[in-house]
Amino acid sequence: MTISLMRFQDAFNVSSAYVSKSPETEDMTFRIIEAIAVRILQQDCHMCSLQELLARVQALMLFKVIQLFDGDIRQRFLAEQHFGILRAWTSHFQSRSNDLEATLHEWVVAEIVRRTIIFSLILDSLQSTLKLGYCTNVPILSILPFTPEIEL
């Protein structure tokens, strides 16, 4: 099984556990989210493929959304602790994706990458707005390229 498939399975499992959590299973659900997030965060992303980095960034974003917006104070604290890593991975991800778009397949991958970067920066912006009262990423968000055509 490839590592990127494992990340997608982790994201699916966490989503399923979170959606079906009850007051009785909430602690266990959060422990699962924390354990998987820590496992992903402990791995070095500088040597992984673009596909693996995409899977890790997307899985980490999902975990951060759950942790930030659930309302549990511990989960929000944990989410805030790892935004530096998400920023670094997003930046690394962005620099590695600049050479794509030679073929249709590469264009599709590049568009997925661009939209993942945009979502990551928006998530970081929401977090900074909640914590500081203002968005710290406005200059970066205003210059990010993506293809808005619905037909594509």
Score class of each variant (00 low, 15 high):
Leu104Asn: 14
Phe146Ile: 07
Leu132Pro: 01
Thr147Met: 15
Ile112Val: 14
Ile85Val: 14
Ala88Ile: 14
Gln94Trp: 14
Ser97Asp: 06
Thr116Arg: 07
Leu86Ala: 02
Ile73Trp: 10
Leu86Tyr: 00
Glu111Tyr: 03
Ile85Pro: 00
Leu53Gln: 14
Leu130Ser: 09
Pro145Val: 07
Gln43Phe: 08
Ile143Lys: 14
Glu101Lys: 09
Arg96Phe: 05
Ala88Pro: 01
Arg96Asp: 06
Asp99Glu: 15
Thr90Arg: 05
Gly71Val: 04
Leu62Ile: 06
Val113Arg: 00
Arg76Ala: 01
Ser95Met: 15
Lys131Pro: 00
Ser125Leu: 01
Ile122Ala: 11
Asp72Asn: 15
Leu60Cys: 08
Leu60Met: 11
Leu50Ser: 10
Phe146Lys: 09
Leu126Lys: 03
Val109Gln: 05
Cys135His: 00
Val109Phe: 03
Arg74Val: 11
Leu121Glu: 03
Leu123Ser: 02
His82Ile: 08
Tyr134Thr: 00
Glu106Asn: 05
Asp72Met: 10
Ala102His: 14
Arg96Gly: 12
Leu50Tyr: 06
Gln58Ala: 13
Gln94Cys: 15
Arg76Pro: 01
Ile118Arg: 11
Gly71Asp: 06
Gln67Gly: 01
Ser49His: 01
Leu62Lys: 07
Leu123Val: 04
Arg76Cys: 06
Lys64Ile: 09
Thr136Ala: 04
Gln43Met: 08
Gln81Met: 12
Ile66Trp: 00
Ala55Asp: 06
Ala110Val: 05
Ile143Cys: 08
Pro145Phe: 13
Leu50Glu: 07
Cys135Ser: 03
Arg115Lys: 15
Val109Asn: 01
Leu121Val: 09
Leu104Trp: 12
Glu52Ser: 04
Gln94Glu: 15
Asn98Thr: 14
Thr116Ile: 08
Gln75Asn: 14
Glu101His: 10
Leu100Ala: 05
Gly133Ala: 01
Ile66Leu: 10
Ala88Met: 14
Val113Asp: 01
Thr147Gln: 15
Leu104Asp: 15
Phe63Asp: 00
Phe83Gly: 01
Trp89Ile: 06
Ser97Pro: 01
Glu111Gln: 13
His82Ser: 11
Ala79Trp: 03
Leu68Val: 02
Thr90Leu: 11
Cys45Met: 13
Lys131Met: 04
Thr90Met: 09
Val113Phe: 07
Leu123Lys: 02
Arg87Pro: 00
Asp72Phe: 11
Phe63Gln: 02
Gly133Ile: 00
Asp99Lys: 10
Pro145Lys: 13
Gln67Lys: 05
Asp72His: 12
